[in-house]
């Protein structure tokens, strides 16, 4: 696939990253070396003068026109997730609204062992640090999923299977 072969391990995205998050995630974003942080409880990228080459819409609910306005000429927005209405709008109006030089793409990620291996290598080299919010034992899986579904997990939520066994059987 062409998009896949453009990057190898030696390549550097080395982007200047601005993140949008709530107050509780600000310190995590500092640890992860984000260049600029916009705390959505008191601030917004909308109506700011900054223009971006790429916007990743991972969570949140903004107007597609807000994303478009915040893009540079030939900028791209990639819709990864977020509110259902944002997703639906991107599918129905996305093509129309982004007819010019700015483009909207909707991601449909596919499992890839090649990509997974590459990222595991970065984790091994401590260039990428997985952020884990909390752990649950197996019998608390429903609680864990419910917590995730609230939409405010900080990094990943893990079911630790060994723990379930040690507490319920021994």
């Amino acid at each position: 696939m062409s998009v896949h072969s453009q990057y190898n391990l030696q390549s550097h995205f080395n982007a200047e990253v601005t993140v949008v998050c709530g107050t509780r995630n600000v310190s995590i974003m500092q640890l992860l070396d984000a260049d600029h942080i916009i705390n959505y409880t008191s601030d917004s990228f909308v109506n700011k003068d900054e223009r971006y080459d790429l916007i990743l819409a991972i969570n949140g609910n903004y107007l597609l026109s807000d994303y478009k306005k915040a893009l540079k000429y030939q900028g791209r927005v990639v819709i990864v997730g977020g509110s259902l209405s944002q997703l639906l709008k991107s599918l129905t109006f996305g093509k129309l609204l982004f007819l010019g030089s700015k483009k909207l793409h909707t991601l449909s990620a596919k499992p890839s062992t090649a990509d997974l291996q590459m990222i595991l290598q970065l984790v091994e080299q401590k260039k990428v640090i997985p952020v884990i919010d909390r752990f649950y034992p197996l019998d608390q899986t429903a609680v864990a999923l419910n917590y995730l579904q609230q939409g405010h997990a900080q990094g990943k939520v893990i079911i630790n299977i060994d723990e379930a066994i040690s507490s319920s059987e021994y």
Partner: peptide, 12 residues
């Protein structure tokens, strides 16, 4: 390049 990441605190 300049990248804006909306919803940066979760898994992805």
């Amino acid at each position: 390049q300049k990248v804006l990441i909306c919803g940066s605190g979760g898994g992805v």
